[in-house]
Amino acid sequence: MTSPALSTSSSSSDNGSAIAELLQETFALTRRLFLQLQRRPSTLVAGVLQPLIWLVLFGALFSRAPEGLLPGGMSYGRFLGAGVIVFTAFSAALNAGLPVMFDREFGFLNRLLVAPLRSRSSIVLASVIYITTLSLVQSLAIMLTASLLGYGWPGAAGLLLVMVTLLLLGFAVTALSLGLAFALPGHIELIAVIFVANLPLLFASTALAPLSFMPPWLGWLAALNPLTFAIEPIRAAYAGPLDLSSVLLEAPYGSVTGTTCLLVLSLLTAALFLLIRPLLNRKLA
């Protein structure tokens, strides 16, 4: 062992710029999450398998729905595809808080907090990078499978819209989940909230059925549900040439265009990050 330098550690902070340090710590924390995923891939597999089962079973269930029932004479499988893609990304992002919660509970977070991190947002940032990548990979896997099942594939511009939409929804839900991971007392409570939130949000959206099928009260819920604002642009991207200014949804409160959808998702993301910021600042102070 070399003698411990009395003038602090020899090759650390002083010469390195703040940004380089921030990148180094964020990269190291992100790498840890991906190493975990690589050695315990069940999260990844289950995250693809579940929506796949939805797609196949639900698609089959309504495959004999009368022609012309859905807007634009779309087949049910095609209709459902957009819903399942969004559901995949949504579920993945909803789980973002779990690793953080386990780190809190098992004291690993304390190990991170004892270190002279340049900014403790690197802990949050690593989670966001990890979960965003994971959810995009899972969504792409679902999209590929759906196209193999004959449910189509969006064009290049459409694909871009799909990715942007999923990213926006993913950020918003990740923020929510990370907030919960710091607000709730333990993983049991967090899993309970995830469990309760997951399916009802799916049912009360336009993932499984169009707004016109729903009784007015449910229609209102679905038209306010953030998932709907992600599903409709993706459905449109699958349906044909991209036009963000066209009306995608006849909501009880008025017509909603593609631009409105993206705007709502952006505002939601911004609002949620602002909302959880004081909490994270307090918990990581």
């Binding site: 710590e25 190291a28 690993f108």
Partner: peptide
């Protein structure tokens, strides 16, 4: 507090990065 999935060396490397060692 230890990450059971990582090896000891990986954990030390993580620690080194958190202290910004080259």
């Amino acid at each position: 507090a230890i990450d059971k999935i990582l090896t000891g060396r990986e954990l030390l490397a993580l620690q080194g990065d958190l202290y910004h060692l080259q």
